[in-house]
Structures are given as structure tokens and as C-alpha cells.
Computed example of a mutant assay.
Amino acid sequence: MLRRFKALGAMLSLVMASTMATAAPPHYPSKPIRLVVPFSAGSATDILARIISTKMGEGGTYQIVVDNRPGAGGTLGATTVARSAPDGYTLILVSVGHAINATLYPKLGYDTVKDFAPVSLVASVPNVLVVNAASPYKSVRDLVTAAKAKPGAMNFDSAGSGSSTHLSGELFKMQAGIDIVHIPYKGTGEALTDVMAGRGDMMFAPTLSAMPFVKQGKLRALAVTTPARTSVLPDIPTVAEAGLPSYAFDSWFGVLAPAGTPKEIVDALNAEIGKVLASPDVRERMAAQGAEPRRSTPQAFASYIQVEIGKLAPVVRQSGVTAGQ
């Protein structure tokens, strides 16, 4: 009997320790939390931020205010957060561009790894190669053939240097062996507007941003960048299927806090984000846009960022891309 009580006591201690490890301080949050989006309104990052912040606010405990801080491939917003107080009231939703920028920018106002406390991955979103609906290009093969016929005459828009939309295009250029000109914008919305207006030949846009225009018949989707097709565009081939067998580029999004944010706050935010991503209505909204919920532990996200930096660095270097191009 004594052994049983000791075993029960040990189990209760473990449960209490686990609860204490994920419990936020008693008065947190006591005011609105600012979620910085380092890209413009209408971007994939912005859409995800608003889906997540709206759901977090439904419980009454969390009030999230989305703060768009676009510019310099997301580094302006990241610098703001890196220099903010580590009190849990300033967060940032970053994209894969956060890992790209570690190589793209020789001098950042922050350390990509050391100046942030990873909270959780939140989603994976394919980029989709789109052209104007009236464009003569009906396939990836059409684009490549036209680009090879007139080197340097065609262009591709992006949400800015160092964004996933940019590196997707650079990888496409390298593997297709073509010369097309990169035109950076300050956000996805502006870039897509010019493609729809016929001023841009093509763009590798996040499905979150491009899908509404594809459905409206304003854009034509030619291929997705991920290794497998996406359920939201099941009839659209991958770039690999369309003629570039080695091509694959996956975009991800995640939440970071400033370095030094107390572990109990990070854990509490991670748990809340987990609840949000498990919610059927959030999963449905994400799936409708081609996004896949993708939660992780803070520790796993930290490791993932470092792996991504190492994986993407050769693509940046081989392309010859530098910040500001």
C-alpha cells in the first residue's frame, strides 16, 4: 500500500510539474498582444495572422492586434521584434524568408537565431506559379520555351528580395536554365496586381494569396512548388511533374517572440496556438486556401529554423542574389 501511495505521489508530482511548465504567469496576458506581420496586408503571412489572431481572441483571454510592418524582405518587422521587450506582448509571424534572410543580407539588425525565442510552426503553404488569365502561356513548358527564345525579355514578380516568392523563382531559373528578370515588390498583393494587369509575366505566389484570383478567373495556375500536389488545386501539377524533376520548394510560417521571453509564456502561447490549429473551423479556412496546419514544440521549431538556414543558403549563394535586387 505504501508503495502505491508513493507511486501515486510521484505521478501527481509529474502532472503538477508539467502543468506549471506550461502555465503562464497569473496575470498574463493583461493587455493586448501585438503580432507583427513583416509583410503588407493581403500577403500570405497577413492572411494567416488574421485567421490565427481572430480565433485566439474568441476565448476572451487573448486579444491580438495585427501590426503590418512591411519592407526589406521582412527584416524591418523582424528588427522591431528583436529589439522589443521580452515580455510576451510582442510576437512576429515569420515565413521561410526569415531563414533565407540569414544568408541574403550580409548585415542584419539582429541575429536570426539568437535574438528570437521560437514559439511554434503554424502552417506550410505551397507557392503556385501563376500568369495572367489572358496570357498565352498555358503550361510550364510554354514559359520555359518562350524564355529561352528571348533571354532577359521576360520577368517574374515577387513579394520582395529574399521572400519565398523570390527564391522559388530563382530556383526555377537555375533548374530551367533560363534568363528571366526578377521584379521585387513590397508585398504579395502589389506583385499579384501587376501580374493580373499584364505588367508582370509570372509569379510564384502563395496559394493563400493567389487562390481567390484563380477562382475568379483573373489568374491561371500552372504548377505548384511543393513535392506533391495540393488538395486545393488537385488538377494542377507540381513543377517537377511539369518538366523540372528536381524542383521542390516548401514555404512555412511560424511565430517567434524576442529572445529572453520567459519559458512559461512561450509554452502558454504554444499551447494556445496548438488549440487554434486543432480547431475544425481554422483547419477548414486554412485548407480552403491551400495551407496545412503545422504545429511544433518551441524546441523543434528552433532546430527546424537552423536546418532551413543551412538548406537554403546554397540556393541564395548559387543564384548570386543580394539584398536590394
Rank of each mutant, 00 (worst) to 15 (best):
R4A: 13
R4I: 11
L8C: 14
G9W: 08
L14M: 10
L14E: 12
A17V: 15
A23H: 07
S30F: 04
I33F: 07
P38I: 06
R50C: 10
I51L: 11
S53E: 05
S53H: 03
E58Y: 12
T61E: 13
Q63D: 10
V65S: 15
N68W: 03
N68K: 03
R69D: 08
G73I: 05
G74S: 12
A78P: 00
A78E: 11
T79P: 00
R83M: 04
P86R: 13
L91K: 06
V94Y: 02
G97T: 01
A102Q: 07
L104H: 01
D111R: 09
V113F: 05
V113K: 04
F116K: 03
F116E: 07
F116M: 10
L121K: 01
V122G: 02
A123Q: 01
S124C: 07
N132K: 08
N132F: 08
A134T: 13
S135E: 08
K138I: 02
S139T: 15
V144M: 08
G152W: 09
D157N: 15
T165H: 03
T165Q: 11
E170R: 07
M174P: 02
Q175R: 11
Q175M: 14
G177P: 10
V181Y: 15
T188S: 12
L192S: 01
V195Y: 00
M196K: 14
G200Y: 03
D201F: 07
P206A: 15
T207E: 14
T207A: 14
T207I: 11
S209Q: 00
S209L: 00
P212T: 13
V214T: 06
Q216V: 09
Q216A: 15
L222K: 05
P227W: 10
A228C: 06
A228H: 10
T230D: 15
L233T: 04
P234A: 13
P234S: 14
D235N: 15
T238C: 03
T238I: 04
V239P: 00
A240L: 05
L244T: 07
P245S: 06
S246P: 07
S251T: 13
V255A: 09
A257N: 09
P258G: 09
A259S: 15
K263F: 06
L269T: 05
A271C: 05
A271I: 02
E272Q: 12
G274V: 09
V276M: 09
P280F: 13
P280G: 06
D281E: 09
E284S: 15
A288P: 12
A291Y: 00
E292H: 15
P293F: 04
S296H: 02
P298N: 08
A302T: 02
G310W: 00
L312G: 01
A313W: 00
V315E: 03
V315M: 04
V315R: 02
R317Y: 13
R317G: 08
S319A: 14
S319V: 05
G324S: 11
G324W: 03
